[in-house]
Structures are given as structure tokens and as C-alpha cells.
């Protein structure tokens, strides 16, 4: 079935074009990497504490949750979709998992295991529904996930009766701040997820077809592939990642509240877009998303160290998002020629 892909009707890369494509993608990512590097150099020179091991591990901890959400968002945006529900889903996953985690009868090992399953399971169900409803009725994911944004938030409030869950097992809590040679373990988890996502997106037929759907949905369908399967898969992956992010949130902050994560979807989308993924789908890499999340994290941290006011900080973050899209326009022209 996969051999049925026809290069002329389908814009997705086949074996012959993959290496050329990777080269171009590499160049795109290099541009974002240079922007990140410039920021790092600027803050290192202009502030006293930016380039210290403590501060670097702080930044890595601070970007972890956004990065994990942004990996999932990359899958969704690559197929030309959008997921506005991840912030609410984070809260829903967290309170479901938090409820499991605080069952007194369970040992720490059982509680953490079951809670992780519960968090990922909740995310998978929500993500599946997002994908299936959009694909089955041919609805824009913007609207479907806007609905899910409300459903998941309402469900989180309903499950907890709007109360905060706290007092998790101390060893679980300690895990959230564990370091390996100055690198937060939670960030390493995110890095592993980036690597897996990179492999899936660039080295498997499944991943290449996601790009194909973003480029030319009709062609993929005509080539005999089930659009439904790939669309549902992209949203479900995003949901599973929200579940993982929820566990990390809880380990880091030792609470699960139904009101956490408001607006997190916007930060995740910003990381993906700054990372060079096209909102129209079909173009972008998860490495770009990693760099995009780093840029947001470095800006948030560096501007505080720089002593800029909160309001100026917010304005600059906005400017960076718009700049990223403008730069992307030019990059598109260059890579197209």
C-alpha cells in the first residue's frame, strides 16, 4: 500500500527526495538555532547570572512542560490541524491522576504507576475524541478542540468539585526536582520524547504520511490511505503527551488543581510556530519545536534577569512570535526556489 505513493500527485517525500528534504529542513532548523544562540550570547553578556549552571537547569525545568505539549502540537499542526484543548486537558489529566495518586490504600509504586496510566489514558481518550470528531464529520479542528477546551476544563472541575489535590507521595515529589549532572530529569524525559517524535516523523512511513496530509490531503486519500486513521493518530499522540506533561507538572509542583494550564495551548502553539512549523501544515520539524520552546524559555528567563518589567516582557514575547512568522515567509521563498 505504501508503494502506491505517487511522487507526482503527492507532495510528500518518497525515498528519493527524503535526503534533499532533510538537508533543507536542517538549514531551516539551523536558522532558528542561530537565533537562539544570539539570544543566549546577548543575555550572557548583558546579565550577570544568565550563564550559570543553576540558571541553565532552571530554564530547562521551566520549558519542560511547554516542550512536551509542543511536541504533540507539532504532530497536529503538521497535518494542518490545531489543538486548543491541551491546557484544559492538562488540568483534566492531572486531577484524574492526582485522585489516583492520593488513594491511601496503594503503595507508592502502585499509585505512581496507576496514576501515570490514568493521566496518559485520559489524554488519549480526549485526543482520540478530538481527532475522531474532526475527521468523521470533516470539522475544523479549531472548533472541535475549542469544544474540548471547555469539556475537559468542566470535567476537571466536576471530578474535583473545584478543589485542589495535594500531598502526593514524597518520593514522587522528589522525582520532579531530580538532577543528572545538572540537567533536570524531567527535561531529559522531554528530550527522549523529542528524539522519538523526530524518528517517527522523519524516518517512518507513518510520519511521512502526516507531512503528506498537511501538504495535500486529497493526494494522500487518492493514494489509498485512510485520512481518518492518520488524523486520529496525530491528535491521540498529542493527547498522550498531555498526560505525560500532567504527571511532570504534578511531580514538579506537588499539586493538581482543576484550574492549572489556562492558556498553555497558546505557549505550545507559539513554540511550534517559532520553531518554523507552518500553520498550514506539511512543513516543520520537532527539532525546530525544541528550539522554539528554548527561545520562549530563554526570553522569559533572560528578560527577568535583564530587569525588564512584566509588561515589556509580554510585549517582547509577542513581537518574537510575529517576527518568527515573518522570517518563515522568507525562508519558505528561499527553500522553494
Amino acid at each position: 500500500m505504501m508503494q502506491a505513493l505517487d511522487k507526482t500527485t503527492l507532495n510528500a517525500p518518497t525515498e528519493a527526495t527524503v535526503s534533499g528534504m532533510s538537508m533543507k529542513l536542517l538549514l531551516r532548523d539551523a536558522g532558528i538555532g542561530i537565533a537562539l544562540l544570539l539570544l543566549i550570547v546577548f543575555f550572557s553578556l548583558s546579565t550577570e547570572h544568565f550563564l550559570t549552571s543553576n540558571n541553565i537547569s532552571n530554564i530547562l525545568t521551566q520549558i519542560t512542560i511547554n516542550l512536551i505539549l509542543a511536541i504533540g502540537m507539532t504532530f497536529v499542526i503538521l497535518i494542518g490541524g490545531i489543538d486548543l484543548s491541551v491546557g484544559s486537558m492538562l488540568a483534566f489529566c492531572a486531577v484524574v491522576a492526582g485522585t489516583v495518586l492520593t488513594i491511601p490504600e496503594l503503595s507508592v509504586f502502585q499509585a505512581v504507576g496507576l496514576a501515570t496510566l490514568a493521566a496518559i489514558g485520559t489524554g488519549v481518550v480526549c485526543g482520540f475524541l478530538n481527532g475522531w470528531i474532526s475527521a468523521f464529520w470533516g470539522l475544523p479542528s479549531f472548533i472541535v478542540t475549542l469544544g474540548m477546551l471547555n469539556i475537559a476544563r468542566g470535567a476537571a472541575l466536576q471530578v474535583t468539585d473545584a478543589r485542589t489535590i495535594y500531598s502526593f507521595p514524597p518520593s514522587f515529589n522528589a522525582f520532579g526536582s531530580q538532577m543528572v549532572v545538572g540537567v533536570p530529569v524531567v527535561f531529559l524525559i522531554a528530550l527522549v520524547l523529542v528524539a522519538v517524535a523526530w524518528f517517527v516523523l522523519s524516518k517512518t512511513v507513518f510520519g511521512r504520511l502526516l507531512y503528506g496530509i498537511g501538504n495535500n490531503e486529497e493526494a494522500v486519500r487518492l493514494a489509498g490511505h485512510s485520512l481518518m486513521f492518520y488524523k486520529v493518530a496525530a491528535f491521540t499522540i498529542a493527547g498522550a503527551l498531555v498526560g505525560i506533561a500532567a504527571m511532570i507538572y504534578m511531580a514538579r509542583l506537588n499539586i493538581a488543581s482543576p484550574i492549572i494550564g489556562i492558556g498553555f495551548e497558546l505557549n505550545a502553539i507559539a513554540a511550534v510556530i517559532i520553531g518554523g512549523t507552518s500553520l498550514n501544515g506539511g512543513r516543520g520539524t520537532v527539532v525546530g519545536t525544541l528550539l522554539g520552546a528554548c527561545i520562549i524559555g530563554v526570553l522569559a528567563n533572560g528578560l527577568i534577569l535583564f530587569g525588564l518589567s512584566d509588561f515589556m516582557r509580554q510585549m517582547i514575547t509577542g513581537v518574537v512570535i510575529i517576527l518568527a512568522v515573518i522570517i518563515d515567509k522568507y525562508r519558505e521563498r528561499i527553500t522553494a526556489s
Binding site: 550559570t52 509542583l253 528567563n301 527577568i304 530587569g307
Partner: peptide, 12 residues
């Protein structure tokens, strides 16, 4: 958590 960690870096 994030903002305070950064403030603490700036003002140990």
C-alpha cells in the same frame, strides 16, 4: 515557580 526561580538567580 518559574518566575521566582529566575528572581532567585538574579538576587541570590
Amino acid at each position: 515557580n518559574s518566575v521566582f526561580s529566575t528572581m532567585l538567580t538574579a538576587h541570590p
